[in-house]
Design a protein around this nucleic acid. Sequence first.
DNA 1: ATATCATACTTGTTTAAACAAGTCAAGCTT
DNA 2: AAGCTTGACTTGTTTAAACAAGTATGATAT
Lengths: 240, 240
Amino acid sequence: MPKSKFEIIYKELKQKIESLEYDYQELLPSENTLTVQYQCSRNTVRRALSNLSEDGYVQSLHGKGVRVIYQPIEQATFTIGGIESFRESALRNQKVSNTKVIQFTDLIADARISARTGFAIGSELYYVQRVRYLDGKALILDINMFLKSVVPALTIEIAESSIYDYLENTLGVQIITSKRKVTAEHTSPLDEKYLDLKDYNFLSVITSQTYNSKGVMFEFTQSRHRPDYFCFQDTATRKR
Amino acid sequence: MPKSKFEIIYKELKQKIESLEYDYQELLPSENTLTVQYQCSRNTVRRALSNLSEDGYVQSLHGKGVRVIYQPIEQATFTIGGIESFRESALRNQKVSNTKVIQFTDLIADARISARTGFAIGSELYYVQRVRYLDGKALILDINMFLKSVVPALTIEIAESSIYDYLENTLGVQIITSKRKVTAEHTSPLDEKYLDLKDYNFLSVITSQTYNSKGVMFEFTQSRHRPDYFCFQDTATRKR
DNA sequence: ATATCATACTTGTTTAAACAAGTCAAGCTT
DNA sequence: AAGCTTGACTTGTTTAAACAAGTATGATAT
């Protein structure tokens, strides 16, 4: 539930763009028009528009207007965009999802783990390995580490349903920032053991560090995807 | 050269964070302090901070301050971040770069090309294939299409040096938005012919559509990278 | 000693206003 | 007819102010 005005305007415009009420290359109503429509100040409208622009939905043209550059994508693959859980992604991509926990232990970060993950040496962690099924096929291998101090009392049951649900709705942990790297790698024996690889000998890999609202990195994840089901999407804006 | 105040503040803070003048997990000076330091309004400071936050450099903590979450990365691979040319990337990654044009023709978008690239059917295009060398090794295969109406008089010579240079400094075309998809794919015969693949049979692929300041998509590019030299980086922020 | 409260910080949201600067078309001048 | 000017739009930058809300600390009351 969005609470602030600019979020409401943002959401509403976004929805209208996605439903093609405003078409590709069309100009949105001018800022002054929106100001009247939403009974708010121009700054508030501009804030909503600025967020849409970051999403790659619109682009401002100085002196002309705000142009829609959103185009619906064909959904052959499992598309990854902002910060969302596996469940949310699966739902948005209209797949039937399923999760199996194959490893669940405690762990204390040593020098090697610290260097690789960014956790401080000596941090107490949960270590989880999960296989993700889409439409019955084992396509994704997730390796997570969670900081115990932020995510206490994690269980296999929670890991099997949705950790993000637990984080946000039970613990009240807010996920704010996620730093990610996308690479491609050869498959490992672990991949071969648990995934339906078909004839693939490589995977698309997302490595991410996640921060909560206190600015503490509490999660390190490596997500290994079969490439034919993987597509990472991004919009960049030039900063002069 | 940044002209506006918020850009100057943004650049300066960014530089200070990168040079570790402000350390990881440290709090920046408060908004009011920065307001005094830079002799500007609080809004202007906030705009600079907001941009840094989008870059994954800082995170705001309500009631506490703005925390630095930037960490320098180890540069083993060729890291791709915002919008920049191959040359800029190569320079930032401290590699010696080189380019060979292997194909340079005209092209008119038919239905198939239109569907794949997003150019309107009948668009007049330049079609360019280039091999990119880093430290003498053929690691990247670039396939570009440019809209002739936006990028007129393109030549092989320009393609061999820097098309982005030509765009920005000669034509005055401003690159604003770039939509990208990252995937992994099997190598094609073309890849095998031109790239130093070692024993790799797959590549990391970035497919991107680029928009100019008029909101017109004028470039479609597919950039095929040998995976051991490729890393795509991104920071996402949760939108409630 | 512990709990509570006041308060002085911090960031978050919103408004109103002014001026700069790019776009575009109508109308005027040449 | 061609070129120029004007004016009414558009978005871009910046300021100032007010209030909301989260955080931390020290003083106070129990």
